[in-house]
Structure formats: C-alpha cells, structure tokens
Amino acid sequence: MFRSIPLLLFLALGTTLTPAAARPAVDPDAPTVILVHGAFADASSWDQVAKRLRRRGVPVVAVDNPLSSLEADVDVTRAAIAAAPGKVVLVGHSWGGTVITQAGVDPKVTALVYVAAFAPDVGQTSAQQGEHFPVAPGLQQLLERDGWLSLSPQTIARDFAQDLTPRALARVQASQLPLKASALAEPVTAAAWRSRPSWYVVSRKDRMLAPQLQVATAQRIGATLYSVGASHVAPVSEPGEVSNVILEASGLRPADAPTSAAGG
C-alpha cells in the first residue's frame, strides 16, 4: 500500500526538473496533461510528446506505472490528478487507456485521449476487448515468466516499434517494463468516457493492437477519431500528430492541424 501521496509522487512521476530560466512560459488557460504509458514501456515513451506540449506552455506530467495491477496503476494516476493545480486532460497509450478509463472519473478530468489504447466498459477487462477481432502478430509472441509478460528484442523490432530508427528502437528496448499478466483480467469499475469527451488516435500499422479493434473502440466510446500511419508506439514515432490531438482535446490550438482525421 502506498504510504503517502508525496512519497508516491516522488517515486512514480516521470518529471524532470529544469532551471526556471529554461522553462517555457505556462499558458494560464492550459489544463495539466497527464500522460499514462502502456505495457512494455515506461514514462520515457512520452518524452517527445511532452517536449512539444511544454513548448506550447502546457504543464505535463508523465507517470511511471508499476504495471503490477490495474489498481496500482490507477492509484499512481489518481495521485498525479490530485497533485495537479486545476483541470486535467488524461492521455493513455495502449494499456494506459484502461487506466485512464477508471481514473478519469475524477471531477478534475475534463477530457480523455486514447492512443492505440484499450477503453473497456464497466465490468469489462482489457483482454475481453480483443474478443471477435484478429489477434495482432505481436500478441502471439508474448513471453511469460513468473506471471509477468514481456517482449523479445525481435518482437519489439518487428511488431512493437517497427517504424523507429535503430537508435530509437534501442532506447525502446532498453526501457521495456513487463506487465503482470493478471492485470489484463481485471475489470474496470468505472468508465470515464461515458461522461467525458474523448479523442482516439488509431495506429494504422499497429501489430500489437489490431487497427480494426482500435477503430471499433473509438466508435463505441463516441470519440473524435484520428489516425496515424504508425506502429504501436505512435507517441514515439509520430509525436507531432499525437501532440496536436492532445492540444485539441485541451481546448488549445494545435501547432499544426491534425492531417489524418478519420472521422468523428
């Protein structure tokens, strides 16, 4: 059990302290954007997105999930929401979508952004979302050890992050964190997308979460839908497109209008 919110934040929030003179001015109208990473990743997967948002004066926090259970990841995200000074936009990638679905019912949360992500309904698990859809190639190659799931370097290169440069791919491989398999069988007890406006970014070249499932999920939750020609790790390979959608969800003008709208 976590002992205190301050300790939790010190241990879990992926924030970097910068000298005050180097920080861009904060937009007083901008909500805090909280970025929630998925399985087989850590908070650094959001680095390029966070950099772009901060340049626009948006306060950003990237949480580091323990990936040990849905409850544990939701607790970390709730602590970040509680620490934010005002309104919050929650952004979840992959498994992080399940986390923001439950954590996003907090009254401070004004919008949700899903990036190649799960978005279960109440009583539904992440694993159940994949029923009746093709099993993506990468999911057929999961490694299991002592109840934890991970990816081999070959699967990361072929199915998880196949559109990255060798250098970026090496960083993704080095920062991989395993996911407790049992987390995928935990049902959500709240579905924030039922009461919050949502945006969804589909990764059209995703080999971990079937694009057909992503589109169906976006339609089911009534999200504003965009798509990018990216692998599963769109926050790394297409940070500009992802950042623009987050800015739109935050009520701010995107740096460039998203170019790959797939409907709404």
Rank of each mutant, 00 (worst) to 15 (best):
P153I: 04
M1S: 13
P31N: 01
V105M: 00
A72F: 10
V201M: 02
V60A: 02
R220S: 05
W148Y: 13
V172P: 05
V201S: 03
A119K: 04
A127T: 11
A21G: 04
S250Q: 12
V202K: 02
S44P: 03
W95E: 01
A223C: 12
S69G: 13
L9W: 02
D27Q: 00
R253H: 12
P28I: 11
R158D: 13
D27W: 01
V33F: 06
L70Q: 11
G251S: 13
L225M: 15
P258M: 03
Q102N: 04
G14I: 12
A190Q: 14
A257S: 10
G96V: 05
I5P: 00
G263D: 06
V61K: 03
Q129T: 03
R56V: 03
G38F: 04
P107N: 07
P28E: 05
V201W: 12
V122G: 03
G264R: 14
W46F: 08
P239F: 13
R171G: 01
V88M: 12
P6F: 03
H132N: 13
A223L: 09
A192Y: 09
V63S: 00
V215A: 13
F40S: 02
G222N: 10
S231T: 11
G264K: 14
A185W: 08
A41D: 03
P137N: 02
L7K: 14
L90P: 09
G123S: 11
R145Y: 00
E238H: 15
D146G: 05
V89A: 04
S94N: 05
F133Q: 08
R23T: 11
P254M: 10
T155Q: 02
V33N: 05
A181D: 14
I100S: 09
S227Q: 15
P239G: 06
P66F: 01
L143T: 10
V135Q: 09
A72G: 09
A255Q: 12
V91H: 02
P31F: 07
R194A: 08
V60G: 01
L53M: 09
S198I: 09
G96T: 02
D121W: 07
P28V: 02
H37R: 08
A62M: 11
A218K: 09
Q162F: 07
G104V: 07
L9V: 03
S68A: 14
L225Y: 01
L17D: 07
A192E: 06
A223M: 09
S195T: 15
L179M: 11
Q48F: 07
M208S: 09
R194F: 01
Y114R: 12
L67I: 07
S69M: 06
G130E: 10
V58W: 03
